[in-house]
């Protein structure tokens, strides 16, 4: 099983991407997509890290909804700041101490931070314990760190790293 189908989730994902790319639901393209989805993971086996187990699908779903909502708010907030002009912004770097340990968790958190309200993850310390985040309009650095940890880091930890 593990030898012939090393990544059970990657296969349907690749098939879906192929169907989207071909933009047709014809049996031929679905079949070709499944074939590619089966062959590509086998030939690129060395490249992929071990698949992470997803512990709590419901927490993951709620996390995705929270992030989607935050992206909308981010866009409105940043648009408003841009229209008001440069005199009203308070840019700052903040250092977020990380509790996450896995590579997947840290990259998910960094990407989430970059997609949401006025923040971009800029730098990760070599020991992977501190993530430097640049904020466009930071009123209170401590509150920003607290929000990031509570809103994003905790759900990611619960889903991917809970023991």
């Amino acid at each position: 099983m593990r030898r012939w189908l090393p990544h059970p989730i990657l296969t349907p994902t690749l098939a879906l991407i192929w169907v989207l790319l071909a933009n047709s639901l014809a049996p031929g393209s679905i079949l070709l997509g499944l074939l590619l989805g089966w062959l590509i993971p086998i030939f690129t086996l060395r490249f992929w890290p071990d698949p992470a187990p997803v512990r709590r699908p419901l927490t993951l779903l709620r996390f995705l909804l929270v992030v989607g909502y935050d992206i909308l708010v981010a866009n409105l907030a940043v648009a408003w700041l841009i229209l008001r002009g440069a005199n009203h912004i308070r840019p700052a770097f903040v250092e977020v101490p990380l509790d996450l340990r896995s590579e997947l968790g840290i990259s998910l958190l960094a990407n989430t931070i970059s997609l949401t309200p006025g923040t971009v993850s800029s730098w990760l310390s070599p020991d992977r314990r501190i993530l430097v985040v640049q904020g466009l309009d930071v009123a209170d650095p401590e509150a920003l760190i607290e929000t990031i940890k509570r809103r994003y880091e905790t759900p990611i930890r619960e889903v991917f790293e809970s023991c």
């Binding site: 981010a74 866009n75 940043v78 841009i82 002009g85 971009v120």
Partner: peptide
């Protein structure tokens, strides 16, 4: 419009997505 590189970074990466 934004005054320095790090503030410029926020506009395009968010509003364009």
């Amino acid at each position: 419009r934004m005054p320095d590189f790090y503030t410029r970074l926020h506009g395009p990466t968010k509003a364009t997505t």
